[in-house]
Each structure stands twice: as structure tokens, then as C-alpha cells.
Write a protein that binds this DNA or RNA. Structure first.
Lengths: 189, 189
DNA sequence: CCTGCCATGTAAATAGTTACATGATTTG
DNA sequence: CAAATCATGTAACTATTTACATGGCAGG
């Protein structure tokens, strides 16, 4: 159950509205935990009801911007959550399932040969997407974590830890690209 | 929507009952797409209703083993699905969210220091789990994919493709371990 | 004032998790 | 035959996704 805590973290870094949070979930923290705006609005309402965050406006405001900030109770909840032992989520990649499905289709049969050709293209396409993400991360690393970086969020979070998170993204994307390069020849001929 | 197709793939590799499938989802195909036995039984019922698989027994049998096999329509569905373009699922790792939450807690404060100590331990623990998974994959690679491997499933799936899937697991786990080794010093002192 | 966009929200469907129930089979 | 285990299943809940709805605001 990380979504409420991802939101609390993002609001602790900087207060903002639901739409602004949705934007942050399209980059930054959203690289490691995704959420749609529907999830975010629902979760914001829950968090406010639990007294972990507060919004400036009191009544329901449809269409009007509504800013939230973390309350002390929210920071306590975040501290409580971070120290819980949590096991890693296993890998879940549909492309690997597909590859395994293709493995049971006989090469030489029409569907098997078609599937192999398509998978080769898909693998190349995914390689491109992962390489793009890798470049993006490397760009962020260069911009945000060079010595004496400029504008910081109000709470001046620990840059070394934020960078470590980014490094995880870099290393995973790099691993994916490497795997694709190793695997593509298997689908040739 | 990969679960029905993961099940079809597994049944294409070898027919079996719900419980046997659940076991396979605890290893093998389940390394890349997880499912509980409840999901599996529900999905098997749906797949049979759609005419993609068949079970030996006709009526509902609570407690008695119930074997399923893929029908031609199921193989067609699998072929149809594998050639659909599908974007990769983004990374989703709660530990990275936690690390980012810790980054907003001031070092020097009591909760911040406690959280850093706990995260150091958690990172070491996760490193151990990923290393364990890595060893497991490397063991499978040695057992199943050495030249002239022995017993094969009836459909003799393409071993090179199955191995490619396994290699993905190996490279991801290795990347995780490498990242942990790089990151642990950041949480020292 | 109308059009497009921004921001917030509702509703419904699907997927996944957790807790529990029950019949069959094996084993001491 | 009693207990443990295996196998199938139900129910309730939570999370996530997809589609849609509606109010406010800014610019032409």
C-alpha cells in the first residue's frame, strides 16, 4: 500500500494540488510508483479525512484548484510506514510472458513464424523505449545532482538518497537494454 | 491482461490441474507473472467458459483434481495475443518510494535517523533476497539449458527463447544487487 | 460569448489480495 | 478412523484502469 505514502512524500517535498501531483506522477516519483489522477483525487480525499493532510479550501470545489499540504500527523504516518519491513514485489513483465508463449509455438508453423517476427520487432521497440527512459534518467542525474545544484524544494530533501533512487532507475533500464541486445539475435533467422 | 495468457502458455507447455498451475506460478512462469490459486481457479473457469481450454470432468468437483488442457481455440487466442503491441509496465518498487520518503526526513532528527538505520537494514535484507533469486535462476540455467538436456515437456518448447526469459531474470536480479552495493554506503554513518 | 483547456470529480469494470470454507485423499 | 494435507472453491475487500461528466478560467 504505497500510493498514499508516495503522495505524502510528494506533498512533503512540496505542497500542491491534485493536478500538480498527477504531473509529478508522470515524472519524478511516478517513475517508481504510478498513479492516475482518479487514484490521486480519491487518495487525497482519504488522506484529508484521516487528518494527514489539509487543503486550503473547506468545501468541495469542482473545477477550482485545491492545494494540499502535509500535516504533522502525515509526517508521523510516513515515518511509521518507512520502517515497516516490506518484501520486494516480484518482476512482472508481459513481454517475458509473451516470449514464453512464443516459445511453445513451433518454429516453422505459420503462427510460430509470424509471432517470432513480431516479437523481434516488439523487442526492438521496447529496447528503444527503455533506452529513451535511460537517457531521460541520465539527463536528470546530470541536471539535478551536479555539485552545488541551484533551486531546491522548500524541504531540501537529502539529495544523495534521491540520487540513489534515480540510480536504481538507470541501472534497471540499462539492464533491460543489455538484455535486449543479448536476446535480439535469438529471434533472428 | 496477461494472466489468462500466462495460464494458456503454461497449459500449452503441459496440461495440468489448478493446483499444479499454482505450483508452476510459484516458480517458472510465475517468476515473471504472479498469481494466487484463487486467481487461477477463477481464470480457469472463465477460459473453459470461453471454450479455450477443456477439463476432463464435466460437473463441478469440489476437492477432486480437475485437469485442464488447451483447445485449438486457446492456441489461436495465444497467437492473437502475442502479436499485439504492448507497452512495458513501468517499474514499481516500494523500497524506492520508501527511500525517497526517507530523503525528506531531516538527518539529525529522531525519526530521520531511525528511518535511515532501518532502511540500511532493509536494503541489506533485500539485497540478500535478490541475490538468492539470482542464484536460483543461475541454478535453473545450469540445469535446464546445458547441451542435450534430458526430459522435455511434451510440446518441446523453444529452449533458446525460454532461456532468454530466464536471462532477463538473471540480469535484473544482478542489477538490483549491484545497485544495493552501490547504495548501501550512502546510508552508512 | 464561445471554444479550448485545466482541474476536479463520478461510475463502472477489471484485477488482485486476504480470509475463509469444504470435500477428497493420504497416512499414522 | 482421526489428523493432516491436498485440491477446489466462495466471499469480501482493496487497488487499478477506463470512460465519462462537469465546473471554472483564459483568450480570441
Amino acid at each position: 500500500m504505497s500510493l498514499p505514502h508516495a503522495i505524502l512524500t510528494s506533498l512533503a517535498e512540496k505542497p500542491g494540488s491534485g493536478a500538480e501531483l498527477a504531473q509529478r506522477f508522470d515524472k519524478s516519483i511516478g517513475y517508481f510508483w504510478q498513479a492516475t489522477h482518479q487514484q490521486i483525487y480519491r487518495e487525497l480525499a482519504r488522506l484529508e479525512e484521516r487528518g494527514l493532510i489539509r487543503s486550503a479550501a473547506r468545501e468541495a470545489t469542482r473545477g477550482r484548484k485545491r492545494d494540499y499540504a502535509v500535516l504533522p500527523a502525515g509526517l508521523e504516518e510516513l515515518a511509521r510506514w518507512t520502517v515497516l519491513a516490506q518484501d520486494p514485489l516480484p518482476v512482472r513483465d508481459a513481454l517475458l510472458v509473451r516470449l514464453r508463449a512464443v516459445a511453445v509455438m513451433r518454429a516453422g508453423s505459420a503462427p510460430g513464424d509470424t509471432a517470432r517476427a513480431v516479437m523481434r520487432a516488439e523487442l526492438a521497440r521496447h529496447r528503444g523505449l527503455h533506452e529513451q527512459q535511460l537517457s531521460l534518467y541520465q539527463g536528470v542525474e546530470g541536471d539535478d545532482f551536479t555539485a552545488g545544484s541551484g533551486a531546491q524544494a522548500q524541504n531540501t530533501p537529502d539529495l544523495r538518497l534521491q540520487r540513489a533512487v534515480l540510480r536504481a532507475g538507470i541501472m534497471f533500464e540499462q539492464a533491460w537494454v543489455n538484455w535486449a541486445d543479448e536476446t535480439l539475435p535469438t529471434l533472428e533467422h
